[in-house]
Amino acid sequence: MVKEIERAGIPVVHICTVVPISLTVGANRIVPAVAIPHPLGNPALEPKDEKALRRKLVEKCLKALTIEVEGQTVFED
């Protein structure tokens, strides 16, 4: 899906836990997520902290969208 959205002309960031799969699929902007069953959350945290963690990840995605990339780029910290 990520490739078809890119092909259509819309910049897309893929946030997922298993980065090697995303690289194989062909995503260009990749942000590593927390865990497979909760990519943008962590049930072990207090709700407030969990939301802060999610916000950090979403902000990282937004930032990735504003950066020009050549080839596949994984946005670590």
Binding site: E4, I10, I21
Partner: peptide, 17 residues
């Protein structure tokens, strides 16, 4: 994706589990 373009979407966040 065609609908997204028609709706003026400029960027997509795609999440995977």
């Amino acid at each position: 994706a065609k609908e997204l373009i028609a709706d003026g979407v400029q960027a997509v966040i795609l999440t995977s589990t």
